[in-house]
Amino acid sequence: MRKILDALGYILLWLCGALSIAFLAVILIYVLSRGIPGVNWQFLSTVYKPGLGLTGIRQIIWGTLGIAGLTLAIAVPVGVFAAIYMAEYAKRGRVLTAIRFCVESLAGIPSILYGLFGYTFFVMQCAFGFSLLSSALTLAIMVLPVIIRATEEALFTVPVSYREGSLALGAGKLTTLMRVVLPSAVPGILSAIILSMGRVMGETAAVYYTAGTMAKAPQTVFSSTRSLAVHLYLLVKEGLGAGEAFATATVLIVIIVGLNALASWIARRMSQRFTGGAKT
């Protein structure tokens, strides 16, 4: 009896495992098999003007890169410096607890609320309009927790002996930080940056309500633009053409899966560096 129950349990566990992998396989195969035929140089290099029969995504790729670039340009320095404060300067106590609580809370806010806030504050209140700037500022807040947490963790993994060595040589705290600690933490930070980039590129709700939907490459930070994810959403929602939607989804998946793989590769390299390649 016991044996039968145990066997049933194992069967159930393996079924659930197989189901999870099957789900991934089905999504990828379904989307990629229909999307790959549509991804060619013409699709990537022409502009999007459906009225003229042009359905390329060149300008939308520029828009996506513009949003991701400006977001990171804002979020990375702020996030890294904030993490430095939390890991290296702040004393344990109320201030640190409060900051950490806020970072955690920011991570839990759904993207549509970021969109709602970005629309109210940056688009309307600050009068930046639907623009690259509004979008980047909103998304910067959204990825801030990712960057802060990863940087903090990377700083914690830098061995104390590095710091002690530098301080013993007479270097000040700031010099030690900038010349010794931070460079050792670079791979960890880099992996967080790449992950955030993937998150920004895959984001829809928050971009839709801050950058608008103009299918044009941004000329200035005040121009409205459209990211790949928003483009896909609009194509699907308005039923504007399944072929382009599949192709756009394919491009999006390839970019983001590639970025995630790169990030985890860097993270693995980093953990080998401090443990001398020893398996833990």
Binding site: S20, I21, F23, L24, I27, V31, G198, M201, G202, E203, T204, A229, L232, Y233, V236, A249, L252, I253, I256, V257, L259, N260, S264
Partner: peptide, 11 residues
């Protein structure tokens, strides 16, 4: 399974 986490929600 981690790959599943990377797929954007709109997809």
């Amino acid at each position: 399974i981690h790959l599943l986490a990377g797929i954007p929600s709109v997809v």
